[in-house]
């Protein structure tokens, strides 16, 4: 009897062995297609001028060159405002924005999911509506409001108008819904205040959702050229994405532009690689049963 069981287990183990290979094969195929944009980005950055203008564009480079990067540094060294200033602005704004976004979204998702405060249903449908908010037509009213609040031409304009991010709140609420109410009830019985419930229970449980939000929003803030174009008049306060955009236009700068595009992408990839393990960490470890 026991012998049979062992045999069965052995066979089961053998049968499972080829599964990783099938997975790897499929993912490699799909991965190649998914990787095409980045491949194109990298390849373009090393293309010499005569290959840049080939049509249709190619996914390989015949004579790779680093001239594009040299051009980029040459252009940025004689720009009006030092390159490092743009970089500093972007880093400052991105860090502040993501920090505040996480706080604001997690603060809002906790009561939305765990308290039936008056109007919570209305608020949730507001979020779902906002998710499909067509921004094109409301661009002008938003401009008037931002200038009316005198946020224009300050660092705040990069941060405050974008803080109420419906996608992040929606995502966090979905994660919060998975957390059983009994954890919070237990905390309440032990005499924790609402603030303690939030900081001691909700925030640790939301770590994965936070990491997901960071990954989702980092790229959009880091590469946000529109805000600087619309609201910032002072060159000192403009960000890197804006500067990279000014490089566009002018055939002579196409090479430098493609090099800039590659350099702009590296931080986003780093952020993803660094925080992805958090997203993938099992929530089972966090005490949810």
């Amino acid at each position: 009897m026991f012998q049979v069981d062992v045999d069965y287990l052995k066979r089961a183990k053998k049968r499972r062995d080829y599964a990783p290979w099938v997975i790897t094969f499929f993912l490699t195929f799909a991965g190649i297609i998914s990787a095409l944009p980045i491949v194109y980005l990298i390849v373009t950055a090393f293309k010499p001028a005569e290959e840049l203008f080939l049509y249709p564009p190619r996914f390989y480079v015949s004579n790779p060159t680093t001239k594009n990067f040299a051009d980029l540094f040459a252009i940025s060294s004689d720009s009006l405002v030092p390159f490092t200033r743009y970089l500093f602005n972007t880093v400052l704004v991105t860090v502040c924005y993501i920090f505040l976004l996480i706080i604001v979204s997690s603060l809002a998702c906790y009561p939305l999911s765990k308290h039936k405060f008056p109007g919570h249903k209305g608020m949730f449908s507001l979020i779902t509506t906002a998710l499909m908010f067509v921004s094109g037509a409301a661009a002008v009213p938003s401009y008037l409001i931002v200038t009316g609040l005198q946020l224009d031409n300050t660092y705040l304009v990069y941060i405050i108008p974008l803080l109420a991010n419906p996608t992040c709140l929606f995502l966090m609420k979905q994660f919060m819904d998975q957390v059983p109410d009994s954890i919070f009830e237990a905390g309440r019985i032990d005499g924790a205040s609402e603030w303690q419930l939030y900081t001691k229970i909700a925030v640790p449980l939301l770590k994965n959702a936070c990491a997901t939000c960071i990954i989702l929003t980092f790229g959009s803030v880091w590469g946000d050229a529109a805000t600087a174009t619309t609201y910032i008049y002072d060159e000192q306060l403009r960000n890197l994405a804006f500067y990279m955009n000014t490089l566009q236009g002018g055939l002579a700068r196409t090479g430098a532009n493609s090099a800039a595009g590659l350099l702009m992408t590296i931080p986003s990839i780093l952020v993803f690689v660094l925080s992805q393990s958090k997203v993938m960490d099992t929530m089972a470890h966090s005490g949810i049963k």
Partner: peptide
């Protein structure tokens, strides 16, 4: 009071939402 206190947590988000999403929408 608990529900009210909890609701307070949502205020920063709601403020931004009303200012920068709702009002422009209504104006449009």
């Amino acid at each position: 009071r608990r529900n009210f206190e909890g609701g307070l947590f949502a205020i920063p988000w709601l403020f931004g939402f009303i200012c920068f999403v709702c009002i422009p929408l209504v104006l449009s």
